[in-house]
Write a protein that binds this DNA or RNA. Structure first.
Length: 639
RNA sequence: GCCACGAUAGCUCAGCUGGUAGAGCAAUUCAUUCGUAAUGAAUAGGUCGUCGGUUCGAGUCCGACUCGUGGCUCCA
């Protein structure tokens, strides 16, 4: 038989030989590294028998699919060890994840740290025993009988959900048997290095109405070195934690009197305001108009907008004058009220209302996280009211602003999702059909790649969300663009058409950075607290060598200040090394070191963050250099 | 909200099986006037998250609460 490899090379193999036999023909090194393979594009075990001419792709730990197999087998190994130690538990699911694996067990008592250690050592024994892993295909009745006998109700539930056309396969290693599609490693001995990381409660099928299961997370690698590398990566990522850096750099704090609501210190507020200034600048270019709106509204508004029916549980509420009020969780109703206050000709559209109002959402305790998910925040929010024929231009205008900005910020790992109608929603299916189709068309026209997330849309409309990862590679939604035909309907918004009749405008909710709080959290982790010069709360610190330079330093500070550079002086009675260290730790982009020599020559010695002494220069030249660096980022020549 | 874990000086943390709290850094004062990532000494600083219980005695054990951290469909 003929086996075709990805590079087009062809092998001749005797009939009845396995995938592994074929891989051995390619080379012993590859045969050793092989974890599984793809035959005609379908992932299979190495023991899979080849009975016709096929294409073959070997999967090792280098391929994502190879790692999946490795981690999937690792979680089986963990399940086997766990079941041996705790025979009373029941198996549910155990998939590989982006980095590692987990398994959910039903168990009355949660696992303890000691339990994890026991499971780890049992796993090590099973690795040493090098049990071979065997696939067995069975009939539905056989599978049901087996898992009934084993008392595995979750497995029975899963078998019942499998379609009649699907092959039911079991994987066995020693006394352990699990329902699994596979493929798997050929033996437990390949899992050389692993670590169980944490235990967590997790609901069956992720639904909190279901029973809570006990989840164990772990990682594993073919060798010890890669595990060490992984643990090192996690440690590095923890150093970038925005909560840690926020404290170290004096940017923000939290207090139990305002749970999950950040307080920004002057340095944090400086960064925050520079971001707002940047967005305002973009608004000038892209034709937005800023408005200022109330924070607290009577319940009547929320009844019209639909928040009362769909969102009330997640809002803070206030009783006053024997009436119900709530601080706003979103700006859209405010803007609808403003749009509705006057007549609009088709000529006036689009109307683009931008608003930096503070928003409040009652996020359930347990879901808040640093700056990433807070109860008090503001967005670079705006609502566009436009004619149906303007929708596509408006969306592409926004996406243009967004992609330029993200490029400027250095976000490279960005992914985009389109979320469609949720179960709980306002508006008719007709309206939703139209909104989803228009949004998809706009994205397709821009040739933007995106993933569809069914059921994840806002209650008033479908949305496109832009995600960026934090230091631990967890994705967070920043930008968003939501098309909405519902709120204009609810608020009965109108504009006058050319022919004098009235029509309903479409509404686009959009935010580029999203919540500024969350954006800052992600961005701090992105730059590890070392803000680029345009955003640094302190751009320059002037450091004196002795107190003889204090007078000269105050002249320097005055000139930098005049040039609009954010500057601080450090004239404390400390050694130069100490003051430099502090400025480096605070991640100030530039230090100007000034001693008797510089004062004599009316110069400054420039030190750059991270790269050390840059030599002496005239102050005016330095000021020009900083100004150039800032404008280079904010208005790149290519734009 | 649910599961697990945590909370000790401004910060980072130590404090074994219950016997009345400790370090480094920061702060303050003094000395030092120094050339590119930590000068030295002295001083001051804590209702051990809050409330309650067990005990002769609680930072330590138990319970409740508050706040925080990780997790709660990347589907056999």
């Amino acid at each position: 038989m003929q086996v075709t490899l990805p590079d087009g090379k062809k092998l001749e193999t005797p009939s009845g030989s396995t995938v592994l036999d074929a891989v051995k023909q390619i080379g012993p090194g590859l045969a050793n590294a092989a974890l599984a393979a793809k035959v005609n594009g379908v992932p299979v075990d190495l023991s899979h028998i080849v009975s016709e001419d096929v294409t073959l792709e070997v999967l090792t730990f280098r391929q994502a699919e190879g790692r999946e197999v490795f981690w999937h087998s690792s979680t089986h190994l963990m399940a086997q060890a766990t079941q041996e130690l705790f025979p009373e538990i029941q198996l549910t699911i155990g998939p590989p994840i982006e980095e590692g694996f987990y398994y959910d067990f039903e168990k009355a008592e949660p696992f303890t740290t000691e339990d994890l250690e026991k499971i780890e050592s049992r796993m090590a024994e099973l690795v040493k025993a090098n049990l071979s892993v065997a696939r067995r295909e069975v009939s539905r009745d056989e599978a049901i009988a087996l898992f009934e006998e084993l008392n595995e109700p979750y497995k029975l539930e899963m078998i019942e959900e499998l379609g009649p056309e699907e092959t039911i396969s079991l994987y066995e290693q020693g006394d352990f048997v699990d329902l699994c599609r596979g493929p798997h490693l050929s033996a437990t001995g390949k899992i050389k290095s692993f670590k169980l990381l944490s235990v967590a409660g997790a609901y069956w099928r992720g639904d909190e109405k279901n029973k809570m299961l006990q989840r164990i997370y772990g990682v594993s690698y073919p060798d010890r070195k890669q595990l060490k590398e992984y643990l090192g990566r996690i440690e590095e990522a923890e150093k970038r934690d925005h909560r840690k850096l926020g404290k170290q750099l004096g940017l923000f704090m939290f207090h139990p009197f305002a749970p999950a609501s950040p307080f920004f210190f002057p340095k944090g507020a400086t960064v925050y305001n520079i971001l707002v200034d940047y967005v305002r600048d973009q608004y000038k270019k892209y034709g937005y108009d800023e408005v200022i709106t109330p924070l607290i509204y009577e319940a009547g508004l929320w009844k019209i907008s639909g928040h009362y029916d769909h969102f009330w549980e997640e809002m803070f509420t206030i009783e006053a004058d024997e009436r119900e009020y709530a601080p706003k969780p979103m700006n859209c109703p405010s803007h609808c009220v403003m749009f509705d206050a006057g007549h609009h000709s088709y000529r006036d559209l689009p109307v683009r209302y931008a608003d930096f109002a503070r928003l409040h959402r009652y996020e359930r305790s347990g879901v808040t996280a640093g700056l990433m998910r807070v109860r008090s925040f503001c967005q670079d929010d705006a609502h566009i009211f436009c004619r149906p024929d303007q929708i596509q231009d408006e969306i592409s205008g926004f996406m243009d602003m967004l992609s330029r900005t993200y490029t400027m910020l250095g976000f490279t790992d960005v992914h985009i999702c389109m979320s469609t109608r949720p179960e709980q929603r306002a508006g008719t299916d007709e309206i939703w059909d139209r909104a989803e189709e228009t949004l998809a068309n706009a994205l397709d026209a821009l040739e933007i790649e995106y993933k569809v997330m069914p059921g994840e849309g806002a209650f008033y409309g479908p949305k496109v969300d832009v995600f960026v990862n934090d230091a631990l590679r967890r994705p967070w939604q920043l930008g968003t663009c939501q098309l909405d035909f519902n709120l204009p309907e609810q608020f009965e918004l109108e504009y006058i058409k050319e022919d004098g009749t009235s029509a309903r405008p479409a509404m686009i909710h959009r935010a580029m950075l999203g919540s500024l709080e969350r954006f800052l959290g992600v961005y701090i982790e992105h730059c590890a607290g070392a803000f680029p010069i345009w955003l640094a709360p302190v751009q320059v610190v002037v450091i004196g060598i002795t107190d003889q330079q204090t007078e000269y330093i105050s002249q320097i500070v005055a000139r930098l200040d005049q040039a609009g550079i954010r500057v601080e002086a450090d004239t404390r009675n400390e050694k130069i090394g100490y003051k430099i260290r502090e400025a480096e730790v605070q991640k100030v982009p530039y230090m100007l070191v000034v001693g008797a020599r510089e004062e004599e020559a009316s110069q400054v010695a420039v030190r750059q963050r991270g790269s050390g002494d840059q030599g002496t220069t005239e102050l005016d030249d330095f000021i020009r250099q900083v100004e150039d660096e800032v404008s280079e980022v904010l208005s790149p020549a290519s734009a």
